[in-house]
Design a protein around this nucleic acid. Structure first.
Length: 594
RNA sequence: GGAGCCAUAGCUCAAUUGGUUAGAGCGCUGCCCUGUCACGGCAGAGGUUGCGGGUUCGAGACCCGUUGGCUCCGCCA
């Protein structure tokens, strides 16, 4: 690596005892200054690390004068002689700890104003960090995160290249398809009144590349979705996107597993055990109440409906009689959690649309519960047996529609795991494939069927008759999600490659033939020109790097993210534009009423 | 759009049940200090307690409103 030039002869982590006696030139930021009145020590920092430089007032008074006045984060260039540190003053925790540079001359090239926040401590105010992102990124941890991200990208490219994938770029100025997330729109000046859309994903382009005979495509692709933000959601984010022809689900699993193994080997020197376990969507929901279960701990859900089939407990009986389910989960050793915690769990259940949350504290004196007096001895025994309940446990029940009961207890399960300390600090890398998702889900509010994954997902061949019969909710998709420690890293599917099947699915989704032609005509047309079977997957690069870096937000692994309101406090984007710009585009900007 | 929690110095946080002049650490300014590495010591500056109203003899604390922040729900094919 080329380092030496007119600015510096070495970087700040380079010098060792063997360099003693050399005259060197270093550039860097003042990481810390220790002023002893006479002697002044400065830790000089660059990207690579830190070197201690020393100002001696007697030998180099002019340099020492400047050294005394240095501040944190000043950018300086120093010239001096590498010297072994005096016996007993070496710093073993520093790579350059055996030596120091005796400064002969120093130039203050970039003085630094007083810092708006400390670079070596916790800062809660994230907008302040984002406003000074160029300072925030000087933090060691942030640099480390960007390095991890860089190495992950490198491993991805190396692996997929070796597997015969071609990196192909697809347009950022793309076409709006109202299905799915809200599009970001870009007005067209050359076609006034018309808009490009920024891609939510390169989905249709990569399928067209398969029709084009590329066979194996990948891209580290920027994607855009105009939805509300979260800790793990940004309006623009990055996917590792790939697609291949003449493949089955197993091929995609093989590549994703191989790619992740290479990533973890290259970045952490960790060997992941392959293949990753597989679990059907149905089983994941039944046992863990989530389509992205965290399997680093147990706390499984049980269907206790049979126990209450003839029960006097009306809240359970009514649900069962209407075809719902009663499910339960056992919080081992949590019988004595605070009442406020229990209330919090009930609030959680209600916020998800549930009616409430029944509970039993299993205590030495018996079962303490609002529903306790309705439980017969037989029901208690059966519950205790099924849930393995013992003194000190907390049993929680949800009685509702199957999907809602599962979801509620799935969320309760995570809270119970937190209360038991089973999630935080758990260093395991637990990967899981979730398979056999339903192809379609019924949207109760809009009274229509929607795609669980996306409309290009292929149904299981043996479930195709269900499509003809109109049993849409029972059709399984050739779709799969990859989950890491309870976070959905990505998902994919085998796609539809026949125009007629694709049209049929569109119709089920309520898109009439005319609209199909308008929005997806290019794809349907392509399918009539020798389309190969194909499938693929997309992984969220930001989320993967976030988990690998131990970060709490994908904002910590993106150099210049937006805040929760989609605003970049540093540049002030989004911003208003000149009237002239709008006139050229033929659009008028409305102002939100205050 | 909805719910809950929060708002005190540049940063991170204190401030008995409502009671005198709102404190500490870091940072900042000045002075002292020749082997530190989170150097140390002395002194100083820095606050309309987010904003507006109310209750009270008295409000950082209690009440109402408002603005902003955080978390969750909705949304994210």
């Amino acid at each position: 690596m080329r380092i030496a030039n007119q600015w510096r002869s070495h970087h700040c982590a380079q010098l060792r005892a063997a360099d003693a006696g050399k005259n060197v030139r270093l550039c860097g930021w003042v990481d810390r200054r220790r002023d002893h009145g006479g002697l002044v020590f400065v830790d000089l920092r660059d990207r690579e690390g830190v070197s201690q430089i020393v100002f001696h007032p007697e030998e180099h008074p002019e340099a020492a004068e400047i050294g005394k006045a240095l501040h944190a984060e000043d950018f300086v260039q120093v010239e001096g002689q590498v010297t072994r540190r005096p016996e007993g003053t070496e710093n073993s925790s520093l790579a350059t700890g055996e030596i120091e540079v005796i400064v002969q001359s120093v130039r203050l090239i970039g003085p630094c104003s007083p810092l708006p926040f400390p670079l070596d401590g916790v800062v809660e105010n994230e907008d302040l960090r984002l406003s000074f992102r160029f300072l925030d990124l000087r933090r060691r941890k942030m640099l480390e995160n960007l390095k991890i991200r860089h190495r992950v990208s490198g491993a991805v490219r190396a692996y997929l290249d070796a597997q015969g994938f071609l990196e192909v770029e697809t347009p950022v100025l793309s076409k709006s398809t109202p299905e799915g997330a809200r599009d970001f729109l870009v007005p067209s000046r050359l076609t006034p009144g018309s808009f490009y859309a920024l891609p939510q994903a390169p989905q249709q382009y990569k399928q067209l590349l398969m029709v084009a005979g590329i066979e194996r495509y990948y891209q580290i692709a920027r994607c855009f979705r105009d939805e509300d933000l979260r800790a793990d959601r940004q309006p623009e984010f990055t996917q590792i996107d790939l697609e291949a022809s003449f493949v089955e689900s197993e091929d995609i699993h093989f590549w994703v597993e191989g790619m992740l193994r290479k990533i973890f080997r290259d970045v952490f020197d960790v060997d992941l055990a392959l293949p990753f376990p597989r679990m059907s969507y149905r089983e994941a929901m039944d046992r863990y109440g989530s389509d992205k279960p965290d399997l680093r701990f147990g706390i499984e859900l049980y269907d206790v409906g049979e126990i209450f089939r003839e029960s006097d407990l009306k809240v359970f009986r009514a649900v069962l009689d209407q075809g719902g389910v009663v499910k339960a989960v056992n919080g081992k050793g949590l019988a004595h959690i605070a009442a406020s915690e229990l209330t919090g769990l009930e609030d959680l259940a209600r916020s998800l649309g549930g009616k409430g949350l029944a509970y039993v504290r299993v205590e030495s004196s018996g079962w303490k519960s609002p529903i306790g007096k309705f439980l017969t001895a037989g029901e208690r025994d059966a519950l205790a047996r099924m849930l393995g309940a013992a003194e000190g446990d907390l049993i929680l029940f949800a009685a509702d529609r199957w999907d809602l009961a599962c979801e509620i207890l799935g969320r309760v399960r995570l809270r119970l795991a937190d209360l038991s300390g089973k999630r935080e600090g758990n260093a395991e890398w637990n990967f899981l494939w979730v398979t056999d998702f339903p192809l379609l889900a019924y949207d109760r509010e809009e009274s229509r069927w929607t795609s669980m994954h996306h409309p290009f997902t292929r149904p299981h061949s043996e479930d195709l008759p269900l499509l003809e019969k109109g049993h849409y909710g029972e059709i399984r998709a050739l779709a799969y999600d990859i989950v890491l420690n309870g976070t959905e890293l990505g998902g994919g599917s085998i796609r539809i490659h026949e125009a007629d099947l694709q049209q049929k699915i569109f119709s089920v989704l309520g898109i009439d033939p005319e609209t199909q032609e308008q929005r997806f005509g290019h794809l349907l047309k392509a399918f009539r020109y020798g389309a190969p079977p194909h499938g693929g997957v997309a992984l969220g690069l930001d989320r993967l790097v976030m988990l690998m870096a131990g970060a709490e937000s994908i904002r910590d692994v993106i150099a210049f993210p937006k805040n929760r309101h989609g605003v970049d406090p540093m540049t002030g984007s989004p911003s208003e534009v000149e009237p002239k710009q709008l006139r050229e585009l033929g659009i008028a900007a409305g102002r939100r009423d205050r």
